[in-house]
């Protein structure tokens, strides 16, 4: 083996290596299960938002597809899981699979709408799809419960053994485990040749295609994948709260997940996770201190973050961490 082969092979191996902070992060996340009751409901929300933001990161941070309507897939997963629970079986894992499938199917069908056009076109198209779905859900109260929400879900015990308790510990364990498994899959995918081709498409789709990358097919695939992830997040919310309301499809949800991802930094897998933690903690703290003004503080925080962070969209927490590390 020549020295050169060593360089290329080692360099490529280094891309996918696990780093110590990653392991610490996950150990802490699972250790939080041992906390005394009280914070698990919030942690469950964090895990669900983290999964949702991870989903958005796959299309925005990796493939460069900006979306203002990602709640469409979240909502599809939530309603699918909710209806499945009421009509078929209360088993949560089966419902999760159904939620994922619903998100993926909707993602596949709408992916063709985002293939062409500029960022602005994509913003409008994704926003439009989510608005349409919201109205459809509103107009079908016999299925969705309309504005009253989908009520009467009785979610069965997880794995047939662990009941969902009032304190949310089972819920957090369930959401965190789902997040972890899907994170591992996402990590595998972004480090693969498929993931590398997405990164190339985001940076320069003209050149990616000139190097033989079938751009449209890759975009359809990742959009479907991300929609499946969002569907999983929606299903988790439906099952752990035993309720689905029209809020799952609201514009606010699409905006929040975009904010969370940008706070954490798009284009690295921990961006959505870190962003979700910061977003939820801020929301929780600010809302308990000044409920009517929390969005004011959130807005101020965003402005400061945008001014301090060097790379606007892709910087986020990663940029800040790097700056702190250099000091």
């Amino acid at each position: 083996m020549t020295r050169g082969q060593t360089i290329a092979a080692q360099g490529l191996a280094r891309r996918a290596r696990w780093r110590a902070p990653e392991i610490v992060f996950w150990v802490l996340a699972f250790a939080a299960l041992l906390l005394p009751p009280g914070k698990h409901l919030l942690l469950n929300e964090v895990a669900i938002l983290a999964l949702f933001a991870l989903s958005l990161d796959l299309i925005l941070g990796y493939a460069g597809i900006i979306s203002l309507g990602h709640a469409a897939f979240f909502g599809a997963g939530a309603y699918a899981a909710g209806l499945f629970c009421k009509l078929v079986t209360p088993d949560p894992l089966a419902g999760l699979v159904v939620g994922i499938a619903a998100g993926a199917l909707l993602g596949l069908l709408t992916s063709f709408l985002v293939l062409r056009g500029s960022d602005l076109t994509r913003l409008m198209v994704t926003l439009g799809v989510a608005l349409v779905l919201h109205e459809v859900a509103n107009a079908l109260p016999q299925w969705t419960g309309g504005a009253d929400g989908l009520q009467g879900m009785v979610v069965g015990p997880l794995l047939g053994r662990f009941d969902f308790d009032l304190y949310g510990r089972t819920a957090y364990a369930y959401s965190l485990a789902t997040l972890f498994v899907l994170f591992l899959l996402a990590r595998c995918i972004v480090n693969s040749p498929f993931g590398l081709s997405l990164m190339a498409i985001r940076r320069n789709s003209l050149r990616a295609s000139a190097l033989g990358v079938p751009v449209n097919r890759r975009l359809v695939a990742v959009y479907t994948l991300a929609a499946a992830y969002a569907g999983a997040a929606g299903a988790l919310l439906a099952q752990t709260t035993a309720y689905v309301s029209l809020e799952v499809l609201e514009f606010q949800r699409s905006a929040d997940v975009l904010l969370a991802l940008i706070i954490g930094g798009a284009g690295w897998l921990y961006g959505g996770l870190a962003g979700a933690i910061v977003f939820k903690i801020l929301q929780d703290t600010l809302a308990s201190n000044a409920p009517q003004f929390w969005m004011f503080w959130m807005g101020l925080f965003l402005v400061v973050l945008a001014l301090v962070g060097r790379e606007r969209l892709s910087g986020g927490m990663r940029g800040l961490l790097a700056r702190v590390a250099r000091r």
Binding site: R15, N191, G212
Partner: peptide, 15 residues
Amino acid sequence: DERLGLGRDWRRRVG
């Protein structure tokens, strides 16, 4: 990767 038809491979890492 694309030339060897590995571009759609999502299971293995690059290299």
